[in-house]
Each structure stands twice: as structure tokens, then as C-alpha cells.
Design a protein around this nucleic acid. Structure first.
Length: 571
RNA sequence: CGGGGCGUGGCGCAGCCUGGUAGCGCACCACAAUGGGGUUGUGGGGGUCGAGUGUUCGAAUCACUCCGUCCCGACCA
């Protein structure tokens, strides 16, 4: 490509509304342009990288035996009503009506459509397992779009779905997808980690997320350096901790005027934070005897929402109780709550169940109990894994202690089970002639997000340092003083043709700009290989080669430069 | 959804407090010089100051409403 015939717009200044580095660099290098909140245009330079990601994903999906289709992004409400998600889905689902006032949504995902296709299209169990995928635009009306294409409302996703007669068959395909995903992220040249994930409210069994590692990632990942254990913090388990130590202190009720927070309690009464608890009031599940229930975690721990939601007595999605309800049922406000004389159901975290001589609210405003001990002062309530893991917690596989990383979720594979097939009556006769509901897997990859995540992981003070696999161009030719020097102009043209013929994705910077502008732009865009042609060098029989990650450029022969560019292109 | 910030040419910003003819840098156009790290000079073009209503002789500036946008929060009692 000749840059004079391409479109490139770069910016010297960082746009004020971009927070993360990938968003800043994507805007500055002219890869994307914001149209409205959470809506981005992929400009020519950005689109080239996006397409390269797509191509790798497509190749590996095909290799894994998945078949490409393309489904509509606008979907009829009937299908969503059939699956039950028309009502279950919140405001993230963008709904609209056509001229006949028929209801539609813009697809945030395509389980309904693909299941509809399969139930109509597949006629025999002999056609199974079957796997379909598409690379397509999705829309989710995020409550807070941010970080550019990292969390946009409209985004490009590869979504795949597999259908099976048996769980064993699903398991096999799930594993094949796992392996395909590893190949994809290996080829993309990203540092990533596959982690156990929560299977969510949809149900289903196994689920893994693929995270690109980056400090700016929105997700926390717990992993064990001594084993293969890695899990999203939503899912990472903590273990029961055994019996509490014997009581050392007497139970006593203490005036704690104005103490409403753990921090204040620790401060004012010199209580170690590990001897405090947080009592959290949440809405109870439908049909429970009281409208709210209590959950308790240690003062220095965090409640894990996902785990809490899974308790039978807790409403899903998790919702905190309002103060009026708490006062009506407990008689005290938040900040003075505790396990003693608590008139509602209580579930405590494993760590709380192992505490002794601890302090908690007395369920009377401005009063706390200190020296609380289970068994002696009140019966030990039901205990469960309710909190987020922390660095230093034992690994659930018993192989050491956990550490934490930040990650950007770029892929998710999921054994869905029969929920959708059941709801949409997607069944086939098995070899015995017995109708059998199909079981399903689904597998997603955020294509646009991968581009952003790659930049998040690969940048320096001058711009993007792409992995070779997804750089918008592989190499750039920068002719110095092309307009004044026949020699340079001709050499540039010849080299350009030679590289094109060799199949190199090469850019010729034939703009009438000074070298400094050229270099700055090409480094911002992050093209891996740069060859500079000058009268001086050509006279000496050399060209100047520099890889984007090199400190210095090198004067080498033209032939060697061609070999380097061509060689790494193949790699 | 709650809180906060910000909306002034394509981008980055000043001006607003204390009302009085809309400015700077980058980018853009023309000419000249320069020609290996975002050149220099001269001369240009481009803005309903987010929208509406109000106050005022007069509003970018003050007030109110709305819209957009970004950040923080939406368990952490």
C-alpha cells in the first residue's frame, strides 16, 4: 500500500477523554473514531489489525472443525420469549419495533438463533456433533461503556456454538475449543492465561475464560505459582478453616458511639481487623420467611457477589437491603449489626466460622459486642465460601498459596448444557429412536477487544509495538528526500515492488513530509520493520533497517534487509 | 441508577470568578526558505462558545431546565 493512497490521520496530542493507554494510542494513531458513547468506527489502519485478528481466529476455528455462518444482528422477540430471556434480560438488551410494531432486539449473543437454526436444519443424530461460528457485530447496552473498544456497546465478536447428543461429546468439543483458543492466542503473540470461570446464572457446568494479562485489566485472576490452578476471582474458592480457637475473653457489650465502619471500630477500640466482622444484609430469595437475610465476612475480607447469589436463601441477582427494612426487622442500622440477637437467617463465611474472641455490632445502635465466641455465646450458623480470595490464601488444589494478576477477558468457553435446547425444543432421535434434547456448548472471542488488549500489552513512549501477527502492516519503506532525489525515489519504488512480490504486507511512505514526521507516525502506528532509504546510504550500498523494538538502526545491504523483512513475515 | 467534572473551529486548551466586539498552540490553505527525528517565516480560511429559557442596555461569562461526554460509585455496614 502506498500511504499517499491510503488514509491516515495521526494526532500529536492525547485526546482528553481517553483513560487507558490502548484507547489513547488507538485514537492518536487514527485506528478508531468515536461516533457516540460506546460506538466506534474502525478507520483503515485499525481495520487492518482487526482483520488480521479475525483471519487468525477464522483459520483456527476452521481447523477445529467449526463451520462459519452469519446470522442477523436483529432478532425477533418471539425467539427470545421462547427461551425466556426476553423478560430475564435487563436493559442491556436493546429492544426495538419495526413499522408493524413488532418487537425485535439487537442481538447481544446468538444462542436463540443458532438453536432455532439447528432444530430446523439438522435432521439426524448422525450429523452430530455439529459446531457453527460467526464473526459478527453484537450490541449490548452497557451501563457504562468505557476504555474505547475495550468495553463498547457495539462490538465485534466471534461466537461459536456446538450441539451434541451426549455430555461426553460436548466435553470433547469443549476441550478441542480450549486447544483452538490456546493456538489462537499463541499465534496472536499475546501473554495470556486460561482461568476457571463462574458459569453464571444460566447454569451449565464447565467454563473457562481466556485473559490477556495487563495491569489495567478489569478482572482479577487468582493463580497458584506451584500448580496449574488459575481462576477468576469470581470463582476462585476458599477452603473451610477448621475449628475456632478456644475462648480467651469474656463476652461484653460496649458503647461504641458513632462507630459505623470497620475502620472506625479498629481505630477507636484498637481491635485487630481480623477480629472484626462485616454483617451484610441482602434481599432474601423469593419465599423465604423474612425479606432479607444476613451474610457475614471477616472485616478485612470482601464479600463475593457471585458466591453469595448461589446460596438458596439469597435473591439472585444479589441486592443489598435498604436501611428502612433493616431497621424494621433488626432494630438497628447498618454499622451496628452483628450475629447476637439477630432475628433473621445468617450465613457466615468459612473464615468467620473459624474466628474466636471477635467483635461485631450488637444490633442496637452505637453498641457492639466484643469477645464473641461461637458455641459459647451463640450457636455456629451455617457457613459457606462467601468471600473473595486474597493473595496468600491456600490454593484450593492444596499445592501452595495463591497470587493475583489483572487480566482482560478476551475469550470464554462454556458448557451450556440443555437449557436452550430444552426451551426451544431442539431435539433429535437417538440411535434407539428415542427423542433426545441436544446439549450445547458456546465459545466467544472479543475480536475488537483483542486489538485493544494487544496494545495494552505492547506499547512504549513512542506508540504501539505490535506483535508481528496483527500489526496493520508488516514493514514500511521510508524514502528520505524522495522528491529531490531520483536515486532514492527509484530505489524506494523498486524495493516496494520487490517486497510486494515477495508477499510482504508493506507500506510505502510516499507522503511529501519530512523524515521526522514519517518516523514519528510510523513508530506511533507501530509497524514492526522499517527500512530507510537515503542518497547517502544508497551511495554506500546500504539501507537502514530498524525493528520497532530495536534501540538502534543498522546499516545493512538491501538484500539482507529484504531477507529480514521477508523472513519475519513468514515467521 | 447515584455522585462529580467537562462541553469554546478537526485536536489540545485559555477566556467565565469580576457580563462589554471570541483568543492561543497544533492541524488546514498559499507563498518562500529548509530538507535525516513531529522545520522556519510571511499571509490566509474556518467557531450558532452543547441546546433552550430567563436576568440584563448588553451573556461564552450570571440563573434555571434539558442534552451530550468523561471519571468515580453502584457489597465492603
Amino acid at each position: 500500500m502506498r500511504l499517499s493512497q491510503f488514509h491516515l490521520r495521526t494526532y500529536k496530542e492525547t485526546p482528553a477523554d481517553a483513560e487507558v493507554i490502548s484507547h489513547q494510542l488507538m485514537l492518536r494513531s487514527g485506528m478508531v473514531r468515536r461516533l457516540a458513547s460506546g460506538l466506534y468506527t474502525w478507520m483503515p489502519m485499525g481495520l487492518r489489525s482487526l482483520r488480521k485478528v479475525e483471519a487468525i481466529v477464522r483459520e483456527e476455528m476452521n481447523r477445529a472443525g467449526s463451520v462459519e455462518v452469519l446470522m442477523p444482528s436483529v432478532q425477533p422477540a418471539e425467539l427470545w420469549q421462547e427461551s425466556g430471556r426476553w423478560n430475564k434480560f435487563g436493559p442491556e438488551l436493546l429492544r426495538l419495533q419495526d413499522r408493524h410494531q413488532r418487537d425485535y432486539c439487537i442481538g447481544p449473543t446468538h444462542e436463540e438463533v443458532i438453536t432455532d437454526i439447528v432444530r430446523n436444519e439438522l435432521q439426524s443424530y448422525k450429523q452430530l456433533p455439529a459446531s457453527f461460528y460467526q464473526i459478527q457485530t453484537k450490541f449490548r447496552d452497557e451501563r457504562r461503556p468505557r476504555f474505547g473498544v475495550m468495553r463498547s456497546r457495539e462490538f465485534i465478536m466471534k461466537d461459536a456454538y456446538s450441539f451434541h447428543m451426549t455430555d461426553a461429546s460436548l466435553e470433547t468439543t469443549y476441550q478441542a475449543m480450549h486447544d483452538a483458543y490456546c493456538r489462537i492466542f499463541d499465534r496472536l503473540g499475546l501473554r495470556y492465561r486460561a482461568v476457571l470461570a463462574d458459569s453464571g446464572s444460566i447454569g451449565g457446568s464447565a467454563s473457562m475464560e481466556f485473559h490477556v494479562l495487563a495491569d489495567s485489566g478489569e478482572d482479577a485472576i487468582a493463580y497458584c505459582p506451584d500448580s496449574s490452578y488459575a481462576a477468576n476471582i469470581e470463582r476462585a474458592e476458599t477452603l473451610p478453616q477448621g475449628a475456632p480457637a478456644a475462648p480467651q475473653e469474656a463476652l461484653r457489650q460496649v458503647d461504641t458511639p458513632g462507630v459505623r465502619t470497620i475502620a472506625a471500630l479498629v481505630e477507636a477500640h484498637s481491635l485487630p481487623i481480623e477480629k472484626t466482622v462485616k454483617t451484610l444484609m441482602v434481599k432474601a430469595a423469593e419465599g423465604h420467611e423474612t425479606p432479607i437475610v444476613a451474610l457475614m465476612v471477616r472485616g478485612d475480607h470482601e464479600l463475593n457477589e457471585v458466591k453469595a447469589e448461589k446460596l438458596d436463601i439469597v435473591a439472585a441477582p444479589l441486592e443489598m437491603a435498604d436501611e428502612a427494612t433493616i431497621r424494621r426487622l433488626v432494630g438497628a442500622g447498618p454499622g451496628s449489626l452483628g450475629p447476637i440477637n439477630l432475628p433473621i437467617s445468617l450465613v457466615v463465611d468459612y473464615a468467620v466460622a473459624a474466628m474466636s474472641d471477635f467483635g461485631a455490632g450488637a444490633n442496637i445502635d452505637d453498641q457492639h459486642f466484643f469477645g464473641i465466641n461461637w458455641g459459647r455465646d451463640l450457636p455456629l450458623p451455617q457457613s459457606a465460601d462467601l468471600r473473595n480470595v486474597q493473595p496468600g490464601d491456600p490454593s484450593p488444589d492444596g499445592a501452595g498459596t495463591l497470587e493475583m494478576l489483572r487480566g482482560i477477558e478476551v475469550g470464554h468457553i462454556f458448557q451450556l448444557g440443555r437449557i436452550y435446547a430444552e426451551a426451544l425444543s431442539c431435539a433429535l432421535l437417538d440411535e434407539n429412536g428415542k427423542p433426545t434434547v441436544l446439549t450445547m456448548g458456546c465459545y466467544g472471542i472479543g475480536i475488537g477487544r483483542i486489538v485493544a488488549a494487544a496494545i495494552e500489552q505492547n506499547n512504549d513512549s513512542r506508540g504501539i509495538t505490535w506483535p508481528e501477527s496483527i500489526a496493520p502492516f508488516s514493514a514500511v519503506i521510508c524514502p528520505i528526500n524522495r522528491l529531490k532525489s531520483e536515486t532514492v525515489a527509484e530505489a524506494a519504488e523498486a524495493l516496494y515492488q520487490q517486497l510486494l512480490d515477495a508477499g510482504v504486507d508493506v507500506l510505502l511512505d510516499d507522503r511529501p513530509v519530512r523524515p521526522g514526521v514519517m518516523f514519528a507516525d510510523m513508530e506511533l502506528i507501530g509497524i514492526p520493520h522499517r527500512i530507510v532509504l537515503s542518497e547517502r546510504g544508497l551511495a554506500a550500498g546500504t539501507v537502514e533497517y530498524r525493528h520497532r523494538s530495536d534501540e538502534q538502526s543498522q546499516d545493512i545491504s538491501l538484500a539482507e534487509a529484504v531477507a529480514r523483512v521477508g523472513g519475519s513475515h513468514e515467521a
